[in-house]
Structure formats: structure tokens, C-alpha cells
């Protein structure tokens, strides 16, 4: 099963403040442990929302809004994807994650979809064709 550790944004990450050397070093140690255990699949930091944009569908209308976006706590600043055997293992790895922000940090852990979890159906077949949600092997 795959899990995504979603790193929430902060005032600093949104202001484009680069993480201090000690934090980068702690992150490298942690991700090194994930890699040594063979469970690290992917990960990246994200640039501030001022460099991004949004597309919103509302009332049959599509609008494009340029960043930055105000609700800092709802934004994300990075992600790490791991593949483990059990949910408990994901919990344990998540507990070892270093604080990803200079001040108040938050990570959110989400299990990624695996279509094999669902009963076969026409809808699931169409999802499958979109090429999303593949946990196997």
C-alpha cells in the first residue's frame, strides 16, 4: 500500500523562504532512512502558490485564478510517497517525520487509491483506464 505524506504550507514556505541548512539536513537524514528501508518511492518540495494558479469549475463555468492564495494552512508545500506493507508501518514512519517548517509545521497522511480494493464495476474500469491509482505490485 502506498501513502502520501502531504506537507502543509506555512507563512515561510509561502513567502519563498528557503529552509535552513539544519532542516534540509534533517529531511535528508529522514528520507535516507526511508530509502535504506527500501520504502521511499518519490518526494518533492513545491514552490510557493504565488507561482501557481487555480482552475475552478462553478455553475458550469470555468475560471482561472492566479496565485498566491490566502488560506496558507490549506495549501501544500511538498509531498513524500512511501510504499509499505501495513497501515501501522506508515504510522510509524510518519511519526518519525521531522518538523517540515521553521515554526508551526503540519503533515497530513493519506493512503493512495488502489483500484484492486474495489469490487469490479464499469466505473472502476473507466478509472483504471485513466491510469490512476496503481498500488500493485
Amino acid at each position: 500500500m502506498r501513502f502520501m505524506f502531504v506537507i502543509k504550507a506555512s507563512k515561510d514556505s509561502e513567502a519563498g523562504v528557503m529552509p535552513p541548512a539544519e532542516m534540509i539536513s534533517a529531511m535528508a537524514d529522514y528520507h535516507g532512512e526511508l530509502a535504506k528501508a527500501g520504502v521511499l518511492l518519490d518526494g518533492s518540495g513545491l514552490q510557493p502558490s504565488s507561482k501557481g494558479w487555480r482552475i475552478t469549475w462553478s455553475g458550469g463555468k470555468k475560471t482561472i485564478t492566479d496565485g498566491p492564495f490566502a488560506e496558507t494552512k490549506e495549501l501544500i508545500a511538498g509531498y513524500t510517497i512511501i510504499q509499505v506493507k501495513t497501515r501501522e508501518e506508515a504510522m510509524e514512519w510518519a511519526n518519525r517525520f521531522p518538523n517540515p517548517q521553521i515554526e508551526n509545521g503540519q503533515i497530513e497522511i493519506r493512503q493512495m487509491f488502489d483500484l484492486e480494493d474495489f469490487e469490479p464495476s464499469e466505473g472502476i474500469d473507466r478509472f483504471r483506464e485513466m491510469g490512476i491509482a496503481q498500488d500493485r505490485p
Binding site: A35, K36, A37, G38, V39, Q83, K85, R136, P137
Partner: peptide, 14 residues
């Protein structure tokens, strides 16, 4: 059985 693929890949990454 498919789990064996994952385990072999994990050990390979290690």
C-alpha cells in the same frame, strides 16, 4: 504472491 514483487523491489532498492 504479487507481494513478492514488491518485496524483491524493496530489497533491491535497499
Amino acid at each position: 504472491r504479487p507481494q513478492l514483487c514488491q518485496e524483491a523491489m524493496r530489497l533491491g532498492r535497499m
